[in-house]
Amino acid sequence: MDEAEIIRQVGLLRQEHRDLDAAIDAMIFATASDQLQVARLKKRKLKLKDEIAALEDMLIPDIIA
């Protein structure tokens, strides 16, 4: 992947992360929220965060000390 593609992918993942955050909040405040579904969404959100961090690490050049 080139740098532009990584940056684009990070942007898409960040948007999905924000969307999941909004969905989780909506489900939590619903009167009859499905706790299993909330847990699955939270797990997906954490996975997205890890993917974002891995892609951002690819953008940082390695420095030999």
Rank of each mutant, 00 (worst) to 15 (best):
D62W: 14
L41A: 14
R14K: 13
D2N: 12
E56L: 07
I24E: 07
S33W: 02
T31K: 10
H17F: 10
K45I: 06
L36S: 13
A65C: 03
L41F: 14
K47S: 12
L41T: 04
L48K: 04
D2W: 07
H17K: 11
Q15W: 00
L46I: 08
L48T: 01
I60A: 09
Q37W: 11
R40Q: 14
D62E: 10
L36I: 13
L13E: 04
L41P: 00
E16P: 01
M1F: 03
L59Q: 08
K45R: 15
H17C: 04
P61L: 03
K45F: 03
Q35S: 10
K47M: 13
M58E: 07
D57S: 12
E56W: 04
A54W: 04
A53V: 07
D21I: 06
I28T: 09
A65P: 15
R18I: 05
E56R: 05
E56C: 06
I52N: 02
V10N: 06
I28C: 05
I63V: 14
D34S: 10
R14Y: 00
A32F: 11
L46P: 08
L13C: 06
A39D: 15
R8F: 07
F29N: 10
L55G: 01
K47T: 15
I7M: 01
K43T: 14
L48V: 05
I28A: 02
A54E: 11
A39I: 11
P61Y: 01
G11S: 04
A39G: 10
Q37T: 05
Q35I: 04
L59H: 07
A32Y: 09
D25C: 07
A65N: 09
I24D: 01
K49A: 14
V38S: 07
V38L: 08
Q35M: 12
I52P: 01
L41I: 02
I24V: 04
L13H: 06
A4W: 04
Q35N: 12
L46E: 12
M27N: 03
D21V: 05
R14E: 15
A32R: 09
I64V: 15
A23T: 08
R18V: 05
Q9R: 13
P61E: 00
L59A: 09
I52S: 01
D25H: 07
A23I: 04
I24M: 02
A30D: 07
K49D: 13
P61D: 02
R18N: 10
H17M: 03
S33M: 08
E5Q: 14
K45L: 11
A65R: 09
I7V: 11
R14G: 06
R18C: 05
D19Q: 07
A54D: 12
M27I: 03
D62C: 11
Q37G: 02
I24N: 01
L13S: 04
A26P: 03
D25T: 13
I52Q: 05
